[in-house]
């Protein structure tokens, strides 16, 4: 779905109000970066995304839906949420994105077996960043 100009305006207002200075949104075919400048200038750039998910690949990808730092395990737990070869249900938490004091879940879009954890703990991820690749079980269709 394309990002509407009204969405950009609304996002910009939220950023300005909340003191966050940058947001990056990536979706198939588009990238949006908003930077709130101290001089109140707004830089926005839209460019076609260079890398799309290979069409022939049947795997589904759990993506971050918010910008922040990726955590493969909860800081209180040694074990990561998922590891390759592990079976997960649709909606299962496969990782966290840390934003300030909050942890937003990254969830499996479909039931299946974990192929790979793509993102590395501690790295900055954005909206749409692939986190975990899942081989869906034959009977299940991806939700996204």
């Amino acid at each position: 779905m394309p990002i509407e100009i009204t969405d950009i305006a609304r996002l910009a207002r939220v950023l300005a109000k909340s003191g966050v200075d940058t947001i990056e949104i990536e979706e198939p075919g588009l990238t949006l970066k908003l930077v709130v400048d101290t001089g109140a200038r707004i830089a926005a750039s839209a460019k076609p995304a260079g890398t799309a998910t290979p069409a022939a690949d049947h795997s589904v990808v759990a993506k971050a839906d918010v910008a922040g730092h990726f955590l493969a395990a909860h800081p209180w737990q040694d074990k990561p949420f998922v590891a390759p070869g592990q079976r997960v249900e649709a909606g299962a938490i496969v990782g966290l994105v840390r934003i300030g004091l909050l942890y937003a879940p990254v969830v499996a879009p479909a039931a299946g077996t974990i192929d790979a954890v793509i993102a590395e703990t501690g790295t900055m991820v954005g909206y749409g960043t692939p986190i975990v690749r899942i081989r869906p079980h034959a009977a299940n269709r991806p939700l996204n």
């Binding site: 969405d7 609304r10 996002l11 939220v14 934003i99 004091l101 909050l102 937003a104």
Partner: peptide, 19 residues
């Protein structure tokens, strides 16, 4: 810490309703 928590939660809720 609690103030930051309140602000962070409010921000995330606002961002989510924006989408």
């Amino acid at each position: 810490y609690l103030d930051r928590l309140r602000t962070n939660v409010r921000l995330v809720e606002e961002t989510r309703t924006c989408r």
